[in-house]
């Protein structure tokens, strides 16, 4: 897979991307000149594969954070587009506004009709402004809640896709009760009598992520991050220097393997080699398979038991000494 078109390259991706570009050039040259370069190309491809493996199997937490923020990384609507045979977006919280940082709607996921909700980032400046960089306001959480209530009413499972740099810290957001909106969702999601699956697809920043992140299963993409605050936020407070974000990411243990070890997530979803942005379609397929596998399991559980298990799951979270 040549990345000739990849406009944005992370520092640690560079060696692979450069090699892939070289291979691409050689192919074109072979084609135009009629020279037999197959052996050389094969050799380089092998090398690129090894290099990729080497780089991606030794990622630091901070590198994963960077991948989670990669501007070419698939976002909620990309996943929905690839995973669902039907999607009808429902807009607005029926109180104040339609928050474009959260999309929600009715969807068909293979044999299941489901409700899907996720934070949506934008691609490019204009789109990002439209989506408020994936930072929801209270009306976004309230929209999510009222659509989830539809799921409960019509007995549909709920899938949430989490990808946010945080709930928006603005004057209006405070005036309209950002904290109350998030708290209300935690309170309600804990007891909704339908299967609830949360997938962290990119950034899971704090309460802004958790606001649509309570469920029976928490799945996490390999190169996503999830923590109580962003590495920059933590660094600014504890190190008094936001530039110490890489250290903060390490200290807070924000990666998917960390969260699996800490007993927070149920499964790490493997990404296509080179990260989800390397092959959106494949990434979506893998995510879909994981969701369906868990959904089929959860659908078997009597609803009353499901709620007990959910409460039990959260009761166990944490670490203390007595």
């Amino acid at each position: 897979m040549a990345l000739k078109t990849q406009k944005f390259v992370l520092e640690f991706e560079r060696p692979v991307v450069e090699l892939e570009e070289k291979i691409h050039e050689m192919r074109e040259y072979a084609l135009s000149s009629g020279l037999e370069l197959d052996d050389d190309i094969k050799r380089l491809e092998k090398k690129a594969g090894q290099l990729r493996k080497e780089i991606y199997s030794n990622l630091t937490r901070w590198q994963r954070v960077q991948l989670a923020r990669h501007p070419l990384r698939p976002y909620t609507l990309d996943y929905i587009g690839h995973m669902c045979s039907y999607f009808e977006e429902l807009h607005g919280d029926r109180h104040f506004a339609d928050d474009r940082a959260i999309v929600s709607g009715l969807a068909q996921l293979d044999e299941f009709s489901v409700i899907i909700i996720g934070q949506q980032k934008g691609r490019g400046t204009k789109d990002n402004l439209y989506r408020n960089f994936g930072m929801p306001n209270p009306e976004g959480y309230r929209k999510a809640l009222r659509v989830m209530d539809l799921a409960v009413k019509f007995d549909k499972p709920i899938i949430t896709l989490i990808d946010t740099p945080g709930a928006y810290p603005g004057i209006g957001a405070e005036e309209r009760g950002q904290a109350e909106a998030i708290a209300r969702n935690l309170f309600r999601m804990a007891r909704m009598p339908v299967p609830l699956i949360n997938v962290i697809i990119g950034e899971g920043a704090s309460g802004g992520a958790l606001g649509i992140g309570v469920g029976d299963r928490i799945l996490m993409l390999e190169n996503s991050w999830y923590s109580v605050i962003s590495p920059e936020g933590c660094a600014a407070i504890l190190w008094r220097d936001a530039a110490k974000a890489p250290e903060a990411a390490e200290a807070m243990k924000v990666s998917a393997p960390d969260l699996l070890e800490l007993g927070i997530v149920d499964e790490i979803i493997k990404e296509p080699e080179g990260g989800a942005h390397h092959n959106t379609e494949q990434a979506a397929q893998i995510v879909k398979e994981a969701i369906l596998r868990h959904l089929r399991e959860l659908m078997q559980i009597p609803r009353r038991e499901l709620l007990e298990q959910r409460l039990d799951k959260y009761s166990k979270m944490g670490s203390w000494k007595e």
Partner: peptide
């Protein structure tokens, strides 16, 4: 707010306490 030194585990206390209050 939540304690940064316990990372994700602090965040999950929000969900835990809210779930208990819901019950």
């Amino acid at each position: 707010g939540a304690r940064m030194h316990e990372g994700i585990l602090s965040l999950m206390q929000m969900a835990k306490t809210s779930a208990k209050l819901a019950r």
